[in-house]
Design a protein around this nucleic acid. Sequence first.
DNA 1: AACGCGTGGTC
DNA 2: TGACCAAGCGT
Length: 396
Amino acid sequence: MPSETKRKITDTDNSACMDMTQHVLNWYDSHRRDLPWRMPPGQRADPYKVMLSEIMLQQTTVEAVKPYFQRFLALWPTLSDLAAASQDEVMKAWAGLGYYSRARNLHKAAQMIMTEYAGQFPDQEDELLKLPGIGSYSAAAITAIAFGRRAVVIDANIERIIARYAAIPETLPAAKSAIHAVLDNLTPNERAGDFAQALMDIGSRICTPPRKKAGQLSQPQCLICPLALGCQGRHADPSSWPRKPAKRKRARRRGEVLILISDDNHVALTRRPDQGLLGGMMLFPTTGWPDGSRRHVDYPVAANSLLWALLDMYQSTADQQRLNQSVHHIFSHFELELKVTVMTGVRRQLMQNALAQDLLAQVIWCPLTELAGEAMPSVMRKVVTLAEAHRGLLLS
DNA sequence: AACGCGTGGTC
DNA sequence: TGACCAAGCGT
């Protein structure tokens, strides 16, 4: 039961919220970033472009996304075009951007909209949430930005801003419910999309994370912040919000990789299973890189390992060289060191006859001239670069 | 709830 | 160099 006092406080809060919201929208009208997926003020964005950009931007910087966004639009200008593409074509276009399940889910979502929604883009948050790869943030963002509906949009930027604004004491993720409540009060019925994008711009340029970016101050620039008037965190150390738990140390792993080039200039590739690390992407044959392995002899030298079978088969007949330099790569949760071996002049016909069927079925022969276009993750591009430097053999 | 999932940039 | 960060999602 709200007492008279309670009601009064609530009214005061709401009017303060409206002021703050209006400040943010006004700030956006004159300071917003000009980005490829944003429409000029007053124009409604294409939902397909909004979805595409939002998914690409998940855990990914604006600068990294820009060229991929343009390339996708050039290849597939409409949702229908993307849905009609093959998964491999989509993976090729996504190669290098990371978090590859996004590409598979995006493709699947496009197909679902074409089939289950008859090509009519869902404009309700709860419907968008059902699509693969679209979670709470993306569903709210698309709802607000593409369809002008009210939605409470929370990404890491907005989370940080609100945690500071309301001086939320809890540690993430426990702080999320309080953050949502505060933001819900601030979110306007009209222009919720502009409001969300405004906060993300403010998070990028003003209410920055503790670590500074190039050319920017390490401390939040509260003096020019449109939220400063109502901000609680500003009176303490804003960079101390949001409170976060400590992260685990990254593990180190090792493995081996083989560049196998045939006498007719094809290179052996394998495709990763759809689920898990680098799902659906093309790799050169590798050992496993199990967690906790310390030495190369610890690798599971399984009798059915494709890589070991290839090495055994050709060690005496082909031109083989183990490079004296490794490829180092950092994934999200472990570091990998890959020893690289290059073999050239391999007789493909000999291999067809000698290799067991189940191993042979794993090999995809790629013409060297087409290697650059394959759906290869960055870690394999590094392998190519190293081999080129040592042997001067590949193309790119 | 906590973890698996990429990559490039910055200090 | 190690650690942290960037418009999160799925399980």
